[in-house]
Design a protein around this nucleic acid. Structure first.
Lengths: 236, 236
DNA sequence: CGCCCAGTTGAGGACACTCAATAGCGGTGG
DNA sequence: CCACCGCTATTGAGTGTCCTCAACTGGGCG
């Protein structure tokens, strides 16, 4: 849980502008010339699992694009228990709050090794003045986040444990045939669907026994999307 | 449940530009001159409870500001059950999806009598070209929606029925001393916190018996925010 | 007056939680 | 190389909460 201070982020050399930002989904579509406007440092950040990118209520003034890896956004309840509010993967943006001058709304924690680009909000503001296109791009990101949030609400907080886990698996393991996420720990899965680790474990164990899931070693898996869908819809 | 077709909305007279849009929170801050850019109709809409403003998956091309009343945004599960994903009140914006050319993501249903302003996405785009300020305003709205969504996830899907109902009451009845929302039906409340109507009813009945809630006639209420907070935090 | 709908209350059962013990894996050090 | 430790996952037993089904109440309105 080594925290990475924002200070640390900004003090680094300005090695970007030549960096991978240009590939970054956020800036895709901006033309070469537009980059001359970037006078502030855009810094690369690397994280290891459990590292914290930023914390709730912090005022960082930067947003981030996730160029590689996976992260989770956490919120906490008064009793201390935590809930995973969203997952982020390649190309996703986090910390958009910074653009409207708000403190971060979550803890952002790395689930895998991550490569991240940190972009000061001021850079966006400057670019945006001459590139309304950028705002369009940002709004798309915002809407994506909102869709995700709503989907989580309806998919992961309703129905039986069996249904929720099935839906989660469909979202995590299966979407892209090869790119299995490491299939997180039971604890994290529980925090996503609002169940205890034990219940998640039991549920997955049963799915395995029924042949819906196949454990390839430790973390890799195959899954029968067909039946998972039926389970998710409560038909089984 | 009389549906209001979007066609119906757009065919109306262009009585706005002089209309209340200028007071609308969304456009607050734009100066007089900026309104000359609005060539398209901005239409007023009035809804009665249970009326539908738009439906999921529709492509309306317009966004809306809620000038008065309260609305709910719904999503559905495969089994047909519905979940209330967000509530909207005075000054809130809905249908932002239209700005990024997406179909609406929810059913938008009136809970009370509503006054609404319908604004074509094209108007925003045109205005935005010369008024980057407007984008800033829009992003703030988007972030608001996102904060709401996240808050619902953590507050209304965790803890016991007692806790959830307490949190809901704190959000609905109490925030503004006088402006009690009609304290929705049990069914709606259930759809917000992920419980059955019976459980909500039982829970509220008990709170009443314990003197935390006082029924003033039929819908009005007083509540002991102090103890509600303690209940919400699981200390009672 | 009686219907209708929303809310309330009851009884019974299912499901997920809690607490607790066991198993499996990986790393570390003797 | 094996023994041991720590962590995570798994499994079990018992309990509590919430859901389901169903009956009953009460106010609003035709």
């Amino acid at each position: 849980m080594k925290p990475i201070s924002l200070h640390e982020i900004w003090m680094g050399a300005t090695k970007c502008r030549h960096c991978a930002v240009r590939d970054s989904a956020l800036f895709a579509g901006l033309r070469e010339a537009d980059f001359r406007h970037i006078h502030q440092p855009i810094k690369d950040v690397t994280l290891a699992p459990t590292d914290v990118l930023y914390r709730m209520h912090e005022r960082g003034g930067a947003l981030f694009t996730l160029r590689g890896g996976a992260m989770k956004l956490l919120q906490y309840l008064p009793d201390g228990s935590q809930r995973i509010v969203r997952l982020l993967k390649n190309g996703d943006v986090l910390g958009l709050e910074a653009l409207v001058d708000q403190p971060y709304q979550h803890d952002a924690v790395a689930l895998t090794d991550c490569e991240i680009c940190a972009i000061p909000a001021s850079v966006i503001e400057r670019l945006g003045h001459e590139q309304p296109r950028l705002y369009q791009e940002l709004m798309v990101r915002w809407q994506q986040a909102l869709n995700e949030a709503d989907a989580w609400l309806t998919e992961f907080t309703t129905g039986t444990a069996r249904q929720r886990v099935a839906r989660l698996l469909l979202r995590l393991a299966c979407p892209d045939q090869g790119g299995h996420l490491p299939l997180f720990g039971r604890e994290d899965m529980g925090a996503m669907v609002g169940l205890t680790t034990e219940t998640v474990s039991r549920t997955i164990a049963e799915l395995r026994r029924q042949g819906v899931l196949r454990d390839h070693g430790a973390t890799l898996r195959e899954c029968d999307r067909e039946t998972l869908h039926r389970i998710a819809d409560g038909e089984e």
